[in-house]
Design a binder for these strands. Structure first.
Lengths: 351, 351
DNA sequence: AGCTTCCATGAAAACGTTTACGTTCGCCCT
DNA sequence: AGGGCGAACGTAAACGTTTTCATGGAAGCT
């Protein structure tokens, strides 16, 4: 079918060893014969058989990406960042997404065994330390994304949820809002936990005398809508609402609109993530921007590092900063134009 | 390091051949010894070495996905659909995205050589018949997505752009609009071409006496905004505007808003794709819905079919229908509630 | 009881590479 | 001029599987 190294050797009248050496640049080959070999190779459209190669070298030049079942921008941008960086490291990307259950993820992990040189894992609540210990092949370089697991065996890369939230709350407080409410995320979600912690810390420092207003959400638009209704029903209505993600903020916004409560006039609103929709709702949504592609890129860099090392001291924790994006919904841009196209947004990096 | 088949054989006191047979269910093994082998395997945490296996079987159980550099929903949903279906076929997914140039894509294709049993290629204008002939290994099962290439060697799966556009134009015409303008997409984009063809066909049939109003866009929001301005400047303003994708429709909408032209009151608007943003702009955007995950799933099914066959008669062309989604921007729901959460949208399948 | 048949099992080849180890040969050095 | 040395190249082993073929023995048949 397709040409093998033997065919090239015969064509160039050398041994297979010389072909291998010439094509891999391992030296020990005369420029003249190297040229002859290269010509023979292209003439036969020779491409080395990856499986055979990795059988002997024990390297697959492939990294795996294991992700829960998620839709939308986050997924695609993350893959994009990882893939781009992987390519620049000469690596391929084996994707296994859409894992709902533990068994599902375990099977995927097992199937990756021996097909990849390293793995990036985007955490879901199911993926905890115990799961990793049980299912990760020992010694396989691993980077955990957005994970609370402080394992000793793998690197962890997190979004700086805490600082991002803190900065946004400070921004809101700076606009004069003291009664700030939080719409929190799922209890078992790591990002949600950190965002709530950031909120509590910021409030403790910036508005220590205010009672804490936290209403529970689950990151869905629907739960944001519900939370919005609850907040409006409060005896003393908050001046500002910080939703732990943008979808919930959008839900809130909808509830406020339907109730005829003006945003940001009567109540300010902010979210977290900067999903594309945030720019297009009316009023446009102030939020904390996560540079997802960068997250993927950094994760890949981290992984490449781990793979180069002799596997010692893999444990480390890294953090990716985020920016706050000021649009209309928080009331800081009262005079700004309202156009999506012409709209100006201010962006400040956190820290 | 990790256990090999020999270790299992020793542990179970049989030959490697028996281990292979037992674990692959090839028969010819006593239930008793099979059990013994299975126990030994799990005890040693044995996982077959993929590379070694595919070296001899010539199957990688992996399919490749080659895609241009695109962001957002389309990418993630497509991958999601492909991955999900691949898994149900027992296949892995090797992704190579973000290819801007021809050389880039060619290199990626070459690198996939021997690592995959089949490929799904999402077309970009650069990927034409000549490119495929030059870079696709002969006999490798291939499915082309959204491609104008009518090759004899691969299967092609397209969105039914024509019917989708036709249906939307018919819907607009049914609302009484006869002067309908098109904002077209990039000239070299296959989807854009088909959508324009659908538009022309529909207009020829439904409003044969109207002069054709087509203004050029490039699928970007910015170009939609420009197109919107051009349309407003026309001597006889159109009653409805059909944008060849949603991003341009959003740009149009912005232009209309800034000019104080009411949508859908003074001018109706529709797009194509049903991106998530479409639901959240005000007024919400009527559009043609493409079930992207289904597209990926069908592509994968097609590919799996090709891989099972002895590679004969791969050529075929398939089409995936789309639905029109009626929201506020086309003026059909004058009395409907405006809420995103409570918003009701009608969906009709095309044909 | 003897012969055939069949089934479980083992030995070994094959897949396409890389690489450690020999071998050959030309060259330099004294 | 002869011995040694290093560069270029070839031979063969190794990687971990699957699979073909051979072998043995038990079971079935006459």
């Amino acid at each position: 079918m397709t040409a093998t190294i033997k065919d090239v050797a015969r064509e160039a009248k050398v041994s297979v060893a010389s072909v291998s050496r010439a094509l891999n640049g391992s030296g020990g080959v005369t420029p003249a014969t190297e040229q002859r070999i290269r010509e023979a190779a292209t003439r036969l459209r020779y491409v080395p058989h990856g499986a055979a190669r990795s059988l002997i070298t024990k390297r697959t030049h492939t990294v795996g990406a294991l992700m829960p079942d998620l839709h939308g921008e986050f997924f695609s941008e993350l893959i994009r960042g990882i893939d781009l960086e992987a390519r620049s490291h000469g690596l391929h990307l084996l994707v296994s997404s859409s894992h709902d259950g533990v068994d599902d993820a375990a099977a995927a992990l097992r199937a990756m065994q021996g097909r990849v040189d390293g793995i990036v894992i985007l955490s879901s609540p199911r993926v905890d330390a115990a799961f990793l210990d049980a299912n990760l092949p020992e010694g396989l370089p691993t980077v955990l994304l957005n994970s609370g697991v402080k394992g000793t065996a793998h690197a962890v890369l997190n979004i700086d949820n805490f600082a991002g939230t803190y900065a946004m709350v400070r921004h809101l407080a700076g606009l004069g809002h003291k009664r700030i409410a939080l719409v929190s995320g799922p209890k078992d979600n790591f990002d949600a936990q950190q965002r709530e912690a950031g909120f509590r810390a910021a409030m403790a420092e910036l508005a220590p005398n205010e009672p804490l207003r936290v209403v529970a959400g689950d990151f869905s638009e629907q739960s944001g809508y519900q939370a919005g209704l609850e907040l409006l029903a409060l005896k003393t209505r908050p001046q500002a609402v910080f939703a732990a993600n943008d979808m919930m903020a959008v839900g809130c916004l909808q509830a406020f609109k339907e109730a005829g409560v003006e945003v940001p006039g009567e109540i300010a609103l902010a979210g977290f993530d900067d999903i594309p929709i945030a720019r297009y709702v009316t009023p446009s949504l102030s939020t904390v921007r996560v540079r997802i592609a960068d997250l993927g890129k950094n994760a890949m860099d981290l992984l490449a590092d781990l793979m180069d090392r002799p596997g010692v001291s893999a444990a480390s924790v890294h953090t990716l900063g985020c920016d706050i994006v000021v649009r209309e919904s928080c009331g800081a841009q009262r005079g700004a134009a309202a156009g999506a196209t012409t709209k100006k947004t201010q962006r400040k990096p956190v820290r």
